[in-house]
Amino acid sequence: MTKRIKEAKRKRLLEVWEAFKANKVALAALCIVAIVIILTPIGSRIAPHDPYDFNLARARQPPSGEHVLGTDELGRDILSRLLVGAKYTVGISVVSIVIGASLGTLLGLISGYKGGLWDSLIQRVNDVLLAFPTILLAIALVAFKGPGVSSLILAIAVSSMPVYVRLVRAAVLQVVVEDYVAAAKLLGLSSWRIMLRHVLPNVMSPVIVQATYHMGLAILIASALGFLGLGVPPPTPEWGSMIGTGKVYLFSAPHIVVFPGLFISVTIIAFNVLGDGLRDALDPRARAMLRRF
C-alpha cells in the first residue's frame, strides 16, 4: 500500500511536469536557468583561463580563438570571468531570494493564521520595509555594512522579504476558511501542525512562482549594485561590476560590456519566462480543466 501511495505522489509531480513540458519556451528557459545554476559551483573549474590573470599586453582584444569572448581592459579572459562570475551574480541572487522568501513565507504564515496582535506587529514592520525602494534599501545596507558578498545577500534578502509576507498572508487568509482547516482543528491538531501541513502546502505555488520572477530581479539588483561599485569589490568577476568597470570602453571595445550585458539579460529573461511557465503548470485550476472530462 505504501508503495502505491508513493507512486500516486510521483504521478502527481509528473502531472505538473507534463503540464510544464507542453510549454516549449518555458522548457528552453528552464534549460538556461539550469545551466546558469550549474555554473555557480563548477564555473571556475571549466573556465579556460584564470579569470584574475591580467596582462596589459593583451588588453581589450576582440573575440578570437584563444579568447572566445575577447579580453577586458586588463587583458583578462572575459569568458572565464563570466563563467566564474556566475558564482557571485547568480549565487548571491539565489541564496538571498531563498532566504528572503523563506523568512517572508514564515512571517506571512504566522501573520495570516494567528491574526490579532501577531498580525498587526508583522504587518506594521512589513509596511515600513515595503516603503523603501528595493535599490535604496540595498544601498543603505551596503553603505552601513560595507560592500561584500554577505552585505549583498542581506540587502537583497531583506528587501525581497516583504513581498512574500504579503503574498503568503493573503493566500493564507483564503486557505484558513477552507473546511479542511476546520476539520484539522476538530481533530485537535496543534496550530503549528495545521499551519505546516494544511496551510503551507496550499500557499506554496504562488511563492514558488514569485521567487522565480524575483531571481531575475535579484540578478538585476546585484548587477546594478556591482555597476555602482557597491557590490562585490573588484577584482571579483561579478557580472554587473564587469559592466561598471568596462563602461568607458563601450565604443572602443564594446565586447567588454556587451557580453556581460547579454549574460545578465538572458538570465533575467529566462527566470521570468520560467516563472510564467511554472505559474501555468502549478495552477490547479488549469490542470483540473484538462482532467474534468
Binding site: I5, A8, K9, Y180, A184, H198, P201, N202
Partner: peptide
C-alpha cells in the same frame, strides 16, 4: 471541494 486538503492523498487524510 473544501472538505479535503487538496495536497493530501486520502490515505494521508
Amino acid at each position: 471541494d473544501s472538505s479535503l486538503n487538496p495536497r493530501l492523498t486520502v490515505f494521508d487524510t
